[in-house]
């Protein structure tokens, strides 16, 4: 059932709608054993929907989802799957130790509770009710719960949102360690930084469509763009050096262009030597975050905002 060759996660031509909103639109994605994949996208892009399909919580309208070659709706397919609960959802009256015992009890060979709590620095809190934990402690417990069953793949949904730097670093260390031991990771985030720190492969998803699926370096190149804003009465665009894409707004005093390029210096040099008329030149070193947002949210419409 689970050959080495069988992909861990195989999503083929999946579409999922919620009423009129198309959360995923013909998505295809294959993840092999031992990969560490970061899924990036703004809120409502479809990341959580995709995870819920992979973990068998929902079914696609069309297309197929396979987990270790099996249907994720079948409980047996999920024996080697770990995922994080949302930290706000932990049963408040149960003690930390009890929640770990409870979740671990579903798996054939769980990590002993004491060992797991030790590993995540929660040993001192074992006897405390989860309702009395801080946000950071709950996050750590949530990630610990994803790993309690010694899964071969974990799905981590925004694992460090809202954590301070130290707590984030230590969770990253735990995720890296899991991966180094051969585990497969699919994590979502809307922090570029997080994906940059962890992932080897990046999938950018927006409005239900996979916009990019590439090695981390390649995607970073694509988003590490500079933005050159300029007005001109002449048509500007990809004829200029290094312009990867541009936007044009028609205005009476000359159209306003936003030109995106990895090398602003070369672009300006080319612009000047080309002899084309221009004014109001402005160069913005778009941050990674900003460039990324530009990349995914170009024609955002409020309809797409499904969480």
């Amino acid at each position: 059932m689970t050959d080495q060759d069988t992909p861990v996660v195989e999503v083929t031509g999946v579409t999922r709608r919620f009423g009129k909103v198309v959360a995923l639109d013909d998505v295809t994605l294959t993840i092999g054993g031992g990969e560490l994949v970061g899924m990036l996208g703004p809120n409502g892009a479809g990341k959580s929907t995709l995870l819920s399909l992979v973990s068998g919580q929902r079914t696609p309208d069309t297309g197929t989802v396979r987990l270790f070659g099996g249907n994720p709706r079948d409980a047996r397919s999920r024996t080697s799957l770990g995922l994080t609960p949302q930290e706000t959802g932990l049963p408040a009256t149960l003690k930390v130790r009890e929640v770990v015992d409870f979740v671990g009890g579903h798996y054939p060979d769980p990590v002993p509770t004491g060992e797991l709590l030790e590993q995540f620095g929660l040993a001192d809190l074992a006897g405390r009710q989860t309702g009395a934990m801080s946000g950071g402690q709950k996050r750590r417990l949530a990630v610990a719960l994803a790993l309690v069953g010694r899964p071969r793949v974990v799905l981590l949904d925004e694992p460090t949102t809202g954590l301070d730097v130290g707590a984030r670093q230590s969770l990253w260390a735990a995720i890296r360690e899991y991966h180094a031991a051969g585990g497969t990771v699919l994590l979502t985030s809307h922090y570029l930084e997080e994906v940059q720190a962890l992932a080897e492969r990046v999938v950018v998803i927006d409005q239900g469509v996979v916009r990019a699926d590439d090695r981390l370096d390649d995607v970073l190149q694509r988003v590490a763009l500079r933005r050159v804003v300029v007005r001109s009465s002449a048509p500007l665009g990809e004829s200029l050096a290094g312009v990867v894409r541009f936007e044009r707004e028609r205005e009476s005093r000359g159209d306003r262009y936003e030109l995106f390029t990895p090398d602003a210096d070369a672009l300006v040099r080319d612009l000047v030597t080309s002899g084309l008329p221009f004014h109001d030149l402005e160069i913005r070193g778009a941050s990674l975050e900003e460039a990324f947002e530009q990349m995914v949210a170009r024609d955002a419409d409020p309809q797409g905002a499904l969480r």
Binding site: G105, H106, P108, D109, Q119, L147, P151, A173, A181, G183
Partner: peptide, 20 residues
Amino acid sequence: MTTTTAPSVHLRTPGPVALT
């Protein structure tokens, strides 16, 4: 920090009575 993964051996999952 050494646990978490162990490419899993095929162990029996808990039965329905144990889970209930």
